[in-house]
Design a protein around this nucleic acid. Structure first.
Length: 604
RNA sequence: CGGGGCGUAGCGCAGCCUGGUAGCGCACCUGCCUUGGGCGCAGGGGGUCGUAGGUUCAAAUCCUAUCGCCCCGACCA
């Protein structure tokens, strides 16, 4: 069977040759006005999707075919490492309260009531459901490890759905969960996912990169994101062309060039200097004739917390950065493990006894420890300031700054932490070459969860000594429509897009130039049938349309190969057109199957 | 949630300021014509002007409310 070729690609959709004239492929000459990004415009124009509501889309014939091909690849690879489940999307409130996420997820969780008035919600992910199964069923270390997954719709009431399929409210997700007896086991499950994900994205034809990611405030240890570079993306990733370093902005670091510290003035003690009207870092630096690198930027935040009794309390958190550096709020929030907001003017006055613009770390009693802070304000200092001397900061007095400030000597930070956003061109922490920053779409995420759910939901098994232990978990996600979206973003031009053959709705479109010409028509039918028999997903454009119409549609809808059947059939020849390069090649009709198999093998 | 924009035929838009017959291009239907890049000619169908209320002799147009969609920001295990 020539189908053996398909063990290579493994994407054959169904054993049916489709005739364009009988299909519903509503292509549009113009994109809807509200589409901004390329993938959104083209998927609508190509008749893949139609919008139902903000962030909610219907998949038409072509879209669904591509979608199913992606799912098939994901399923095949996941089946190699885990077991597929099918879990409900409709969850009882209690389940989410058990994990503490009912409150945590806030407005992003879709909530509804059943007829009896019972609170329900729509699943955003399935940690709770999977863990509850594990909770009821897993008893012994002998049953571990387990990897369970599903491919099912997820619901998130996003504050702002956008960019077509990139950020939506209902989407298809492959989510899997691993349960291991110990951290070493989790390492294995994690690695299996890492490798499976690489195979999945490779087979889907994506040019992706794997970046170190922040595991957030969830207490996880290790996390990687699978990213596809595209200007349409919402994430920023930092990477190095010189080595394989790559991380997202929340995690990225860089090697900083050494800074020349100022020489102490006077007796070396903090020295008050008059800086009338000079508020910004730039103004002060220029006024004093120093570089912003020798200045301290003082940022004031509040963490609003609610204690067990429901009482609100706010804690002041002050951050010191090098004058020319930007605070990364994700790093900051991860460090303090809570949500924060900038201080308001009265709060600044209350803590510093000074107007904004002249803030500094002196004269305030800071907490000694991040956890046991005793209600005192926290002073977090960015690592770039560690070891620096004779810096300049605000004096907490209008129109005055202080010179000769040395952290650890003149004031005592609660903690040093990496709080800085890397900027493009800084040196790679591994090899020193300049770093680049790109926007990207996150198509997959693997994450060592740890004991977050085992603990909150009370998951225990007996180990080989008969002792109760908490299994350790990992969770792993892939956004199905994001694969499609990223593929479209990755391959498009003015006329449309081309998908990698493995995820294209059809691999080949056979386009007879004139269906009223009997020789052309017969040859087209013959070619389409032979390709179909050889295992290709093929569509025959048998519409009685002018060639221009067929070519335009073929260019638009993402099919990677076109066979144009025209006058040259009388010589026994047709044209094979590669959509991506527009390379055209005359091929003998009798050799067409072998030819395409060869092309596919090279491109696939 | 803050800021901005838009809802008129399937799609893209004009008309609104200055109230008085609802229009254009594409798509669609019929016929003829044409057949290697959205061809041409002729004829034709299709719109509660997002919704509700108000002002007016008269509202797509002015006023109020409301719903929806898009963009920027905030948010995003």
């Amino acid at each position: 069977m020539p189908v053996s070729r398909y063990s290579l690609l493994g994407t054959r959709y169904s054993k049916t040759m489709h005739r364009w004239s009988e299909l519903f492929i509503p292509t549009l000459r113009e994109a809807p006005a509200d589409a901004e990004v390329a993938s959104h415009k083209f998927l609508v124009r190509a008749g893949y999707i139609r919008q139902l509501a903000a962030g909610i889309y219907s998949y038409l014939f072509l879209g669904n075919r591509s979608f199913n091909k992606i799912i098939r690849i994901v399923r095949e690879e996941m089946d190699k490492i885990g077991q597929e489940y099918y879990l409900p999307a409709l969850h009882p409130r209690e389940l989410w309260e058990a994990s503490g996420r009912y409150a945590l997820m806030g407005e992003n969780l879709f909530r509804l009531k059943d007829r009896k008035g019972t609170d329900m919600c729509l699943g955003m992910t399935e940690e709770e459901v999977m863990t509850s199964i594990a909770l009821k069923e897993l008893r012994s270390y002998k049953q571990l490890p387990q990897i369970w997954y599903q491919i099912a719709p997820k619901f998130r009431d996003e504050p702002r759905p956008r960019s077509g399929l990139l950020r939506v409210r209902q989407f298809m997700m492959k989510d899997s969960y691993s349960f291991d007896i110990d951290a070493a086991g989790l390492d294995v499950s994690y690695k299996k996912h890492y490798e499976a994900y690489c195979r999945i994205f490779d087979r889907c034809g994506l040019k992706y990169m794997v970046v170190e990611a922040d595991s957030g405030a969830m207490g996880g240890k290790e996390s990687h994101e699978f990213m596809v570079r595209t200007p349409a993306g919402e994430d920023q990733i930092v990477s190095c062309d010189g080595c394989d370093y790559a991380a997202n902005m929340e995690k990225a670091t860089s090697k900083l060039e050494a800074v020349t510290d100022l020489v102490a003035e006077g007796d070396g003690k903090p020295l008050l200097v008059h800086t009338p009207g000079q508020k910004t870092i730039e103004e002060v630096a220029r006024y004093l004739g120093v570089s912003p690198k020798n200045k301290i930027k003082t940022l004031a935040y509040m963490a609003d917390e609610v204690d067990e009794k429901g009482k609100k309390k706010s804690r002041a958190i002050v951050v010191l950065m090098r004058g020319d550096h930007q605070l990364n709020e994700a790093k900051f929030n991860a460090t303090v493990a809570t949500a924060t907001r900038p201080m308001e003017e009265p709060e600044i006055e209350a803590l510093f006894n000074s107007p904004a613009g002249y803030l500094g770390p002196l004269g305030i009693e800071w907490a000694r420890d991040l956890k046991n802070h005793g209600g005192k304000p926290l002073l977090l200092v960015d690592k770039a300031l560690e070891g620096r001397v004779n810096l300049i900061a605000g004096a907490n007095k209008k129109d005055y700054h202080l010179k000769n400030l040395t952290p650890g000597k003149d004031f005592h930070p609660t903690a040093y932490a990496d709080l800085r956003s890397v900027t493009a061109g800084e040196a790679c922490p591994n090899c020193g070459k300049p770093l680049r920053i790109d926007t990207a779409v996150e198509v997959g995420h693997i994450f060592k969860l740890g004991y977050r759910y085992s603990e909150s939901m009370g998951l225990r098994v007996l180990d080989r000594n008969g002792k109760e232990v908490m299994p350790i978990m990992g969770c792993y996600g892939i956004g199905i429509e994001r694969i499609l979206t990223a593929a479209v973003e990755q391959g498009n031009d003015n006329d449309g897009f081309w998908l990698p053959a493995a995820i294209a709705p059809f691999e080949v479109v056979v386009a007879p130039v004139n269906v009223k010409d009997e020789a052309v028509r017969n040859a087209s039918e013959d070619i389409a049938k032979r390709l179909e028999a050889a295992g290709f997903d093929v569509v025959l454009d048998d519409r009685d349309e002018r060639p221009g119409v067929k070519f335009k549609d073929a260019d638009l809808v993402g099919i990677p190969f076109r066979i144009t059947v025209g006058k040259k059939v009388t010589e026994g020849t047709v044209e094979v057109v590669l959509r991506e390069t527009r390379e055209v090649c005359d091929v003998t009709i009798s050799a067409i199957v072998e030819y395409l198999q060869g092309v596919l093998r090279r491109s696939g």
